[in-house]
Design a protein around this nucleic acid. Structure first.
Length: 855
RNA sequence: GGGCGCAUAGCUCAGUUGGCUAGAGCGCUUCCCUUACAAGGAAGAUGUCGGGGGUUCGAGUCCCUCUGCGCCCACCA
């Protein structure tokens, strides 16, 4: 136990207690606990290639309050931390930092040293290195970042068990990711297919539906005439992308559209290129869009893909993977004029080609009128800078119900089984699942990540056999097919006819992070641990990644374990700047968490975070942090005050009615806070606790402190002393999840072990002796005291001024209560004489205060 | 177009099965260095609870409807 200082202070408590908690392993997970004793949290692994910001502080605090509550409830809390160092952000950061580039074709170098460690000169040409070397550099670099992250999270007071740390590119994660994938493959849940795919031309990789976002971009409608091949006039279509006319394979209108019904089955000739294409009917064509008849290109958008598939149309791709027009004209262009028109755009970038085509259309007279500028939403990869194109490529998919009604129904049911906090967030899940239009594309044409763990046999002409991949044994995982050699082959057979070839792709980062419960729980390496923590109890995360992280985790657990990955999920809101805009670096309004910890103290920052209701977007507010600091100071001072009284004799119990009634109110607060925490509503628990605490300090303690000083005899004092200590103990523990540093400080003034391992207060015990005490006693006492204070304030005099006479008008029941608290009121109000005046029933208490003349 | 959320004091927000004479904090005003706390404390002012209808003895709370704001999803020729 620590001595109570004369001037309690919050300075330095964070580093002090962090050290003590580490030393005492306060938050260590006891892996002998059985599943029902465990509370397991699937912590979101932050991306280490950025920096932690207020959004992290905000949402991780929410989770930590729940973790601490559960721990005090006696649960063995499994609270790991992970670092997400897999994926594009890390790839970029490692490239820039070391001046290297990942190239799976390069052989592994055991003692490789990068050309730079930080700040390569601008003219430096990146050195190509193998994927295993790249992963080693990633580990080296992210270790530095991870140290900074860990320091910040410790300073924030997260009760994480740091021995459970994982990273998403480490060996175990790669193993689990590959193992889960191979099991998906074996069960037919993963498959490879060549198909049109959304494609980022800068990153040159396929992207998944979940990673799309719409951005408003200027464009223009162009009316273009297609000549009917029967010579009977033109068909006018509207398009924003005339550049794709060379890729046009048909026109399409709605089957019921009377304007175009006569044309169905006929052909029209494309302007410039002179290719005959059919006019077809399909219900997806919208009569009220443009001219009501559209050109189908391979591929302008996802609707084109649907039409192409359902109408069995040919492919005339004109876009390469870097976003340029291909050099070779597509099939169908045969006339000299057509070939010349195509030659004019071959090799050009999309925008240039578009201008060329528009000019040519105008010259040829097939552009009707002027283009009409519009602003319309265009699909982008969320990390990308240019609009997505659609190219045909071979990719790996995991089934997610996008193409299978039964699976979709099962996954929707999983969403219903999950407890959502707040509940309305479940709609985002069902909305997303119901809107899926394809399976989950997991392969990426990148170089850094978890490799797709398969090879392909090459036939005598060197063509891969995709239908029967070569699968590694699970015991050999993780593997890198670009450097590892499949069983039964030798390395000199790589990429040779009759030999083998490794799959060049990596899995999308979500394909690994969707296994975070399995990774954190060490599935497959420590199944004893895994069975003690899985399915987990809680998945905290942002609501923006329901469609990615949450959904994909549900999919993987559904397939692998036939269960939900966790029973509850809690969704955090966004941090908004004080102008209610989402905070962003570009606006320069980002405050670093460490500055705030230093200014206000970690507990004050946590107080701000914990004051926000679950799932609600919340304004950044230093005012709230000031309030939090004030509360922490109050907790120090109130604790010091209560504990500075003599320890009551052992066996003493609260006997005074007011003391018992006070404890009853504390008990009610415990009930409310407990109920709120059981529903993951940390904010309500805090609010109730805080309200009661201020009442305890301002009203109750003020009322009884005279008696506690022994003004009314030993027994009367003992009742107050015992009651104050019982209440203080409960209040300190109620605050412990929110203000771990301050509460630990005050708790250790009178306890040997950590408050964070103490039992959550028990409302039954607190309220044990409160059977027949009128709850209204506290209100009556507060009311009378309040009226006396007001009289002194109105007289503009000190609260210490004695009251010569107080006439209390009250009804008979109130009179009885008054009598019970009269002695305490006498001291609290410095009242020299009371005069009771009886009023009819239900009359509000009225106190006429006659102040003593000032001396 | 479909879905969800929000609208309560100048600001940020509580208000959980309908019982409120509508609350808190910040800010504002006044007073007090009262020996736990001046990075305090005591007290005070401020609201047609977005509009309209309905159910009810009683509606900020339930139902319908309208308006405004935000988010998610879909469409995007």
């Amino acid at each position: 136990m620590a001595a109570i200082p004369d001037k309690p202070s919050l300075d330095g408590i964070e580093s002090h207690w962090d050290g003590v908690w580490s030393q005492e392993a306060t938050y260590g997970f006891d892996r002998s606990a059985h599943r029902e004793q465990v509370f397991a949290i699937d912590t979101p692994p932050p991306t280490v290639s950025g920096s932690l910001h207020m959004g992290h502080v905000f949402s991780y605090t929410h989770t930590d309050t729940i973790a601490r509550y559960q721990r005090m409830r006696g649960k063995d809390v499994f609270y790991p931390m992970g670092w997400d160092d897999n994926g594009l952000p890390t790839e970029r950061r490692v490239q820039n930092y070391f001046g290297v580039r990942c190239d799976p074709a390069v052989a592994y170098q055991p003692d490789f040293q990068p050309p730079f460690r930080g700040d390569p000169p601008k003219d430096h040409q990146s050195v190509s290195i193998s994927r295993p070397n790249f992963i080693e550099l990633c580990n080296e670099l992210t270790h530095q970042d991870e140290k900074v992250f860990e320091d910040l999270f410790r300073r924030l007071g997260l009760s994480v068990d740091w021995s459970l740390l994982y990273t998403t590119i480490e060996e175990r994660s790669r193993r689990i990711s590959q193992q889960a994938f191979l099991r998906n493959l074996a069960r037919g849940e993963a498959y490879t297919q060549e198909a049109p795919t959304l494609w980022d031309v800068d990153f040159q990789t396929a992207v998944a539906q979940a990673e799309l976002e719409d951005r408003e971009r200027p464009g223009a409608y162009h009316q273009v005439a297609f000549a009917r091949t029967d010579g009977d006039g033109d068909v006018i279509i509207d398009t924003t992308r005339p550049v794709l006319i060379a890729a046009c394979v048909a026109l399409v209108a709605h089957p019921d559209d009377e304007r175009y019904k006569p044309l169905f089955g006929t052909t029209v000739r494309t302007p410039l290129y002179g290719v005959d294409v059919p006019v077809l009917a399909h219900p997806l064509a919208q009569p009220d869009k443009g001219t009501g008849i559209a050109m189908i290109c391979t591929f302008g958008d996802l609707t084109d893909v649907i039409w192409w598939r359902e109408l069995n149309l040919p492919t005339r791709a004109i876009m390469d993977r870097a976003g340029r027009i291909v050099m070779t004209p597509p099939a169908g262009i045969t006339t000299d004029a057509g070939l010349a028109a195509f030659a004019a755009i071959a090799g050009a970038k999309i925008n240039q080609a578009q201008n060329t085509v528009v000019d040519a259309l105008r010259t040829s007279g097939t552009l009707i009128g002027d283009p009409r500028p519009i602003v319309h939403p265009v699909k982008f990869y969320e990390k990308g800078e240019r609009p997505l194109e659609i190219v045909t490529s071979r990719q790996w998919y995991i089934r997610n119900g996008g193409r299978d009604g039964d699976l979709r129904t099962s996954l929707l049911e999983r969403g219903r089984q999950l407890q959502w906090h707040p509940d309305h967030m479940r709609h985002r899940y069902s909305n997303w699942v119901e809107g899926l239009n394809g399976d989950w594309l997991i392969s990426r044409q990148r170089f850094f990540g978890v490799p797709i763990p398969v090879w392909y046999q090459l036939d005598s002409s060197g063509e891969p056999n995709y239908s029967d991949p070569i699968i590694p044994d699970e015991s050999s995982l993780p593997i890198d097919p670009s450097t590892d050699v499949p069983a039964g082959y030798t390395s000199d057979q790589r990429d040779r006819p009759g030999g083998f070839s490794g799959d060049p792709d990596v899995m999308d980062t979500w394909a690994t992070s969707s296994l975070s419960p399995q990774i954190a729980g060490r599935w497959g390496d420590d199944d004893d641990l895994f069975t003690r923590v899985f399915p987990m109890d809680m998945r905290p995360q942002g609501h923006d990644i329901i469609r990615t992280w949450l959904f994909s985790t549900v999919v993987r657990a559904h397939f692998e374990h036939d269960s939900l990955p966790w029973s509850n999920t809690s969704l955090s809101g966004w941090i908004l700047d004080p102008d209610r805009k989402k905070m962003s670096k570009s606006k320069g309004n980002v405050v670093t968490p460490m500055d705030l910890f230093e200014t206000f103290g970690s507990d004050a920052v946590r107080y701000w975070a914990a004051s926000a209701r679950p799932g609600v977007d919340t304004a950044f507010s230093e005012d709230q942090m000031k309030v939090g600091r004030k509360l922490a100071m109050k907790l120090l001072n109130a604790s010091k005050f209560v504990l500075s009284f003599p320890v009551p004799p052992s066996g003493a119990t609260p006997t005074h009615a007011i003391d018992v009634a006070m404890l009853d109110r504390i008990a009610e607060t415990v009930r409310e806070a407990t109920r709120a925490f059981e529903e993951f509503d940390y904010a309500r628990a805090l609010e109730r606790t805080e309200t009661t605490f201020w009442w305890f300090c301002d009203d109750y303690v003020e009322l009884v402190k005279g008696r506690a000083y022994n003004s009314q005899g030993d027994d009367a004092a003992a009742s107050a002393l015992v009651a104050m200590r019982i209440a203080l103990s409960a209040l300190q523990r109620l605050f412990a999840p929110f203000m771990p540093f301050t509460t630990e400080t005050v708790w250790r003034w009178w306890n040997e072990s950590s408050i964070h391992l103490a039992a959550w207060p028990d409302s039954q015990v607190l309220a044990a002796s409160s059977s027949d005490i009128p709850v209204s006693m506290l209100d009556v006492a507060g009311d009378i005291l309040g009226q006396i204070r007001r009289a002194k304030t109105e007289a503009k005099t000190s609260q210490r001024t004695p009251v010569a006479r107080a006439r209390v008008h009250c009804d008979p029941p109130t009179r009885a209560i008054f009598t019970a608290v009269r002695s305490d009121l006498t001291e609290a109000g410095s009242v020299q004489e009371w005069i009771l005046i009886e009023e009819p029933a239900d009359t509000p208490v009225l106190v006429e205060v006659e102040l003593a003349p000032s001396t």
